[in-house]
Amino acid sequence: MKPLVFTLRSEPVERLDLSALTPARLSDLSSAAIEKLAIGTTQRPLRVGDVFRLRDGDRSVIRFSGGSSRFDRIAMAMESGVIEVDGMVGREAGCGMRGGALTISGAAGDYAASGARGGAIEIGGDCGDFLGAPLVGEMEGINGGVVIVRGRAGHRACDRMRRGLVAVEKGAGEYAGSRMIAGTLVVAGPVGGFPGTMMRRGTIIMPALPEIAPTFLDCGATPLGFTALYATSLAARSPRAARLLRRALRRFGGDTATLGKGELLVPA
């Protein structure tokens, strides 16, 4: 099966909204119709054909050859199929995804995986701020699925996370897991200050303890069986994160400013 390939002609002059280019939304369109889809975001929007050379193929596997920081909302609300990007993307990559797989070889912008509910997202490079976070006004961030970021995440990764598993390999910025509702964030690199600010529930696992608020309390090191499950689940997808999870961990309970039922875990 040959994938449907979008080859970038040149850097677009405006931000693109690529939410229309998912397997489900393209399944019934001819390639000529696809080329006519408006994907620009200004009053004179670019069309697919202006930005990409198209090579027709199986609509359930979509490949972007060449990326841009102006590729927004790639794989938004995707339910099944595969999207692969050879390059970088902009904002809201995989936002609201429900299933399928999104693989980005390069970096992603802010709000990657925002509100995702399922599926697998892999970002080869760094991602911006607010990984998995809700968009303005929405109440919940990532709500399911598995996200792997091979590089670093920006500030407030997994803000308002509700469910799911996010593993970031090289580190994260400040306020990781802010206002977390639940879910699991594993960061296998250095993490900025005040992780878990106002978290209600949820788990943030880090290789070392950064500056934390006094509303997190040391609960000591006790074996926690569940980390082994996560290690097994992540073993193939992120050996680095799996290794961290297999270590003996020390638990800090908080944030007692709010409900106080979350936890920060670091090697004992």
Binding site: G225, Y230, S233
Partner: peptide
């Protein structure tokens, strides 16, 4: 604590 992983729910 509830944890959901790979479609299954666990309680701690």
């Amino acid at each position: 604590i509830s944890k959901r992983l790979d479609g299954k729910r666990y309680w701690r």
